[in-house]
């Protein structure tokens, strides 16, 4: 029972990180029809911003804020510099642009900083665990679950209450008609990128707290997972992206915890096989619309 609860919390914490990343991908996709493959680099930018901030003697909590701000700003700049000029081109052009942005950033990280991992010293209190009725829960896990919950709540309020939030939901269905409402297309798209950057920044901090270092390719794996989560949840559905992130994390954590030792090397393949089976049963994803065609 105890190990079960422990693993459940692990899965929630990991699922939160995937959910934040997947939600960022899904927000940009829903307004632009673009899967932004440079999304992972936003996490990496958070990492380097924190690395340099800490190296400059800035306290850890402020470095965290700077790291998140850096990812948000980078996402907005990415849209302005790379994606806006090709917005009216076809989807393949935008997709290739996102690969280019990703590759250029890799090169910059490698050549201007280092190809080797840079350590990010995490404060001691974050490495510890909290004792909760006999259960020891990692501080990082608690922070991860709390941050995810708060962000998802704030985002829900934003999407339900504010005009810009309602406009973003409208734009995910019908962009031209959203503009007919007098909604500025650039504002909607820039906001989507800004939020995706913010979420990637927070996910980056949570990811870094576990790893303790940043390297040029840091963002690749988690964003690949987030992409799987988005497809699993239903491309274009924001709640779907969140659900997909949690489902993926639960599958991964269960396999890691309960699979026999000699099966462990295959756990990624087993995870992906399960995802494929889910998609065979529901090709539109868990919460996707049947008629969703882009």
């Amino acid at each position: 029972m105890e190990i079960f609860v422990q693993q459940f919390i692990n899965a929630l914490a990991l699922g939160g990180t995937y959910a934040l990343l997947a939600l960022g991908l899904a927000m940009v996709f829903s307004v632009l029809g673009l899967i932004n493959f440079a999304h992972g680099e936003l996490m990496t930018i958070t990492g380097y911003a924190m690395f340099f901030a800490i190296a400059a003697g800035i306290p850890f909590p402020i470095a965290v804020i700077l790291g998140i701000a850096a990812a948000t700003l980078a996402a907005i700049l990415m849209e302005r510099i790379a994606f806006r000029p090709v917005r009216d081109a076809n989807t393949a052009t935008m997709l290739l642009t996102s690969f280019a942005v990703s590759t250029i950033l890799h090169m910059l990280f490698q050549n201007l900083i280092s190809a080797r991992p840079k350590a990010i010293p995490v404060p001691d209190w974050m490495i510890g665990a909290i004792n909760l009725g006999g259960l020891s829960i990692g501080v990082i896990q608690v922070m991860s679950i709390t941050a995810t919950t708060l962000l998802l709540l704030a985002l829900t309020v934003f999407l339900r209450r504010s005009i810009l939030g309602i406009a973003m939901r409208a734009a995910s269905l019908d962009f031209p008609v959203t503009r007919l409402m007098g909604i500025n297309a650039n504002a909607v798209i820039a906001t989507a990128f800004g939020i995706s950057g913010l979420l990637a920044g927070v996910a980056g901090v949570l990811w870094l707290a576990q790893r303790g270092s940043v390297d040029p390719l840091m963002g690749f794996l988690p964003v690949l997972k987030a992409f799987i989560a988005v497809v699993l949840g239903g491309l274009g559905s924001l709640p779907g992206a969140v659900l997909g992130g949690f489902v993926l994390a639960f599958i991964e954590v269960s396999l890691r915890a309960f699979l026999p030792d000699d099966w462990l090397p295959f756990r990624e393949s087993i995870t992906l096989t399960l995802v494929i089976i889910l998609l065979l049963v529901r090709p539109e994803g868990l919460l996707g619309r049947k008629d969703a065609v882009r």
């Binding site: 005009i163 309602i166 406009a167 939901r169 409208a170 995910s172 269905l173 019908d174 008609v177 959203t178 503009r179 007919l180 409402m181 007098g182 909604i183």
Partner: peptide, 29 residues
């Protein structure tokens, strides 16, 4: 639209994923 001309498009194009109140609210954006 901000100058004061608007189009009610062919095929209605209401935002089916928003409530009626939200559709009206965004109309006044």
């Amino acid at each position: 639209v901000r100058r004061g001309m608007t189009l009610c498009p062919e095929g209605r194009h209401v935002f089916s994923n928003l409530t009626i109140a939200e559709n009206l609210k965004i109309g006044a954006a």
